[in-house]
Write a protein that binds this DNA or RNA. Structure first.
Lengths: 212, 212
DNA sequence: GATAAGTTGTGAATATATTCACGACAATTG
DNA sequence: CAATTGTCGTGAATATATTCACAACTTATC
């Protein structure tokens, strides 16, 4: 299944967005949708949407649009929504807590199974239905988890990353400003809040008017 | 100054990253740096870094590299680091609180000046040195603020957005899953935590090995 | 059942971004 | 001071992504 390197990365990044929106439509009882409607709702050009869908074959009908239920079923399979992916969260600060309270499992194949922190005041509690363990137990408890959300202070980032990699993690969602170093078979997505904010301000000042 | 539509967007998004790293180097007392070193540290190809810099003219010296202080000064001006941009934060939940406690002002031209929430338990307090006001005071207090961070529940997102736009905001960093609708002169950057996590998982499964 | 309105899928064009590869120059070494 | 090593800036090539524009088809209407 993997490595059918057909789908452009830009398309792949939009898939979860499509999936969630289709799910909403389905819950609302809509049975039919056009690329134009989708475009208005999720602010992606309708030609881009049609192109994205077309990488998976002809999912719609000319002159009609797309059948919501069919499309949803198709994306469910494509995004492996049926098998759950367990995730661990490291660092139960404000940001980490936000994740734990976020109800991911709804419409989602990812689930935060456990969290780690060094603060004994947090260890042993459940936050958002997720148990918080002490960071020292990371190695023994992470045996089956391949993905981690990193919300620790920047000073800890690389050291914790090394430990995560050692346990066999091969995907990290990194919220620290550190550009962590990992072996090349480990995928890291960086989300740098300060950079995002500065970037927005830069675009506001230097790229007026244009849409995205 | 604005609308010198010279710099590619991809480059613009990396500028804050460059800036922060140069700042670190400067604090460490380094006076010289090469595109190769930068590349190793921030995981961006060295040719891309040189290309990015070259949009601003010849900032380095062949055979030598870049002078950290000069480059830093240049980026400070380019990123308007001297004039502070006031920002408001709407929604003091866990995610909002994470932002308030994040020490942005360090190395940064953005500063969260005020926050809003509907919860009277939060109103009136200072969090991370930022005053929290009641959401009803939004219109009267936001007179000089052009940028907002939106960390409210998804059900409130569009309604609050409309109010923000009404007060004259023209940049929104949207952390809600809602794809908010705004006039076309308002810039919105979406950061969708659930999508980011799902996207990471999708890439882990379907795009093994490759770097980014 | 003919016409009008709406829609997809996609070839081709265009736009954007990255990477290669090398000439020109700087610094260092012996 | 010659040789070596390291570096930038950039033309050209390549890769990736978006958008245009239209034939082919569906549905709705009268």
């Amino acid at each position: 299944m993997p490595n059918q390197h057909k789908i452009p990365q830009a398309t792949a990044k939009r898939l979860p967005l499509y999936y969630r929106f289709l799910n909403n439509l389905h819950l609302q009882g809509k049975s039919r949708v056009s690329s134009k409607e989708l475009s208005d709702a999720i602010k992606v050009d309708s030609a881009t949407i049609r192109r994205d869908f077309s990488y998976f074959g002809a999912l719609g009908k000319k002159g009609y649009g797309y059948n919501v239920e069919y499309l949803l079923g198709f994306f469910r399979k494509t995004l492996d929504q049926d098998e759950n992916t367990p995730v661990a969260l490291i660092g139960v600060g404000n940001l980490g807590t936000a994740f734990l309270n976020y109800n991911f499992t709804k419409n989602n194949n990812t689930r935060i199974e456990m969290a780690f922190d060094a603060d004994m005041g947090k260890v042993g509690h459940m936050i958002g239905n997720v148990p918080v363990y002490h960071i020292d137990e990371l190695e023994e408890r992470m045996t089956d988890i391949k993905a981690a959300i990193l919300t620790v202070p920047v000073s800890e980032a690389q050291q914790i990353t090394d430990r995560l990699v050692e346990t066999g993690v091969n995907g990290i969602l990194n919220f620290t400003p550190a550009r962590i170093t990992v072996p090349e078979d480990v995928r890291v997505h960086h989300i740098d809040l300060a950079v995002e904010l500065q970037s927005l301000v830069y675009f506001m000042k230097h790229y007026p008017l244009d849409q995205e």
